[in-house]
């Protein structure tokens, strides 16, 4: 599983869960809050993405993530770890 696949899963979940976002607007350098996501939206996007990708990232790591790219990195690292 590469970063592009992970980004695609996260983007799909963001578009499904957070209201009023256009796919062309989504910039991985921005945070979900910048797009109007509530705390509950963020919990749902992260948990749906982890479930779909079958990986788990500890809460302590998730809390320090600043943008969508950071979430991709964390899930990618967890996927690599799982593959070992």
């Amino acid at each position: 599983m590469d970063r592009a696949e992970i980004l695609s899963v996260i983007k799909r979940n963001i578009l499904e869960i957070v209201e009023d976002i256009d796919e062309s607007d989504l910039d991985p350098q921005k945070s979900m809050k910048d797009y109007g996501a509530t705390s509950l939206d963020i919990v749902e996007v992260v948990s749906s993405s982890m479930r779909e990708l079958r990986v788990k990232v500890p809460r302590s790591e998730l809390n320090s993530i600043e943008n969508i790219d950071g979430l991709v990195d964390a899930l990618h690292a967890a996927a690599l770890q799982k593959a070992l």
């Binding site: 009023d20 607007d25 910048d34």
Partner: peptide, 8 residues
């Protein structure tokens, strides 16, 4: 500054 959602 980075917020793109006008409502937020």
């Amino acid at each position: 500054r980075n917020v793109v959602c006008a409502r937020t």
